[in-house]
Design a protein around this nucleic acid. Structure first.
Lengths: 237, 237
DNA sequence: ACCTGAACACCGTTCAAGT
DNA sequence: ACCTGAACACCGTTCAAGT
């Protein structure tokens, strides 16, 4: 009945998109370390070496993963109906960054990969084109728009480099608590801050020390700080 | 004459510090890819497996590299005489971030490594203790200080995630120019911005497209934007 | 206590060979 | 044109053995 090989029935056919999809899925599920040529091949029912017909190598694969994810950002963020930049550039940019963040949160490996890229991502350029459109439309001149792009940095893509984040692992969180406890006497200002914050907030119990930060609201706070600083400069011109 | 083995004369003796020093040196010179247990061993005239007596493994080695570099930051930044926080918290924080940046620029791999850390770095905690001291001393309450820490993010350590940066390699820069040129028609806002910026600035010649950004002044601009936004909130309380 | 050598289980990548 | 198998030059790490 089936004269075609079984494999060709199950596996539609290899392509760059399918390779990148598999790589992104592996990274989402198992972190960046789970992304190897051999494992991607395995995932697709194919020998690792077959991938090289669709992707130049590991570095280009990582570039492609960024393209895939930021491409998704462009699609989803573009569909969000924000305010008219001419009336409310701040709101337009804010809703954009928050929408991008939703996509980013599905791919927590993105910041780390972006930090190692040396090539320019076309999708990131496209993303910034829309940002520039909002700024120019909102009354920024070209020069200030350019500076604003730098000042926003990765924030406009929905994330910032976290310095205190155990990354969701309970083990790492426990380690963080332990090292902080050992250091507490040495860092009086920080200890005082933490004590007072825990008191003020209705934080109950052991969460009061380190892992208690609400990432989403801290992200929004930081974004608003930058937006305020930019508005100050726009109004001054 | 020498009854002691030649190796022991040349090589003082292995220790965690010497291993980390060698790792940092390798990363500074050849990038993160140059850091392997085997190459560090080679650098120290020792078998790779000897390193495991002083360092738990690769992850702990990377943690240690962060400690080494941020430790140097703490030392150098602590020596800088900034303004009194009570009189000028902004200036105190600004000079701190700029001094940290000088150290960071010697170790361009730092942002990428920090992006992959899940453990809490004691030296980073110490660094932030001083930052908290400045903020509290400058009239921030504990809650706002906490938010400010998040808003500043890696900026207070002297860097931000760059999205457009070819990382100094001429090859990558050429690639970036090429992809941007191919995209130019597709990104009208960005193209317009670049054209006007090039015109305004006294930028001469081909530098006018992408690689022309002054990283240092863009960093300072972004830092000042955040500091302004924070001052706004401090004054409001 | 510290260092070594061989070995194991992985990598990314090349290349000649298959269909 | 696309996929494969074997091979190469690397990884990080374990472990038993040396001194």
């Amino acid at each position: 009945m089936t004269s075609t090989p079984a494999r060709r029935e199950r596996r539609p056919q290899l392509s760059a998109e399918r390779v990148l999809e598999a790589a992104v899925r592996l990274a989402d599920e198992g972190g960046l370390d789970a992304v190897s040529m051999r494992r991607i091949g395995q995932e697709l029912g194919v020998e690792a070496m077959s991938l090289y017909h669709h992707v130049r190598g590991k570095e280009q694969l990582l570039d492609g993963m960024v393209e895939t994810v930021v491409g998704a950002m462009n699609a989803e963020v573009g569909a969000v109906e924000g305010p008219d930049p001419a009336e409310d550039w701040r709101g337009a940019l804010r809703s954009r960054a928050l929408a991008a963040r939703v996509v980013m949160l599905r791919h927590p490996w993105l910041p780390a990969v972006l930090a190692t890229r040396t090539t320019l991502s076309p999708e990131v350029v496209r993303y910034h084109d829309a940002v520039v459109g909002i700024l120019l439309g909102g009354g920024f001149d070209a020069d200030l728009t350019h500076h604003a792009l730098h000042a926003l940095g990765s924030r406009v893509l929905g994330f910032t480099q976290e310095l205190f984040d155990p990354g969701g692992s309970g083990e790492a969180e426990a380690q963080s608590e332990a090292t902080f406890a050992a250091l507490a006497a040495e860092v009086p200002h920080l200890a005082r801050m933490l004590a007072e914050v825990a008191q003020t907030a209705h934080t109950d119990g052991p969460d009061a020390t380190l892992g208690w930060c609400d990432d989403q609201s801290e992200f929004e706070f930081g974004l608003d700080v930058v937006l305020d600083g930019l508005e100050l400069r726009r109004a001054r011109r």
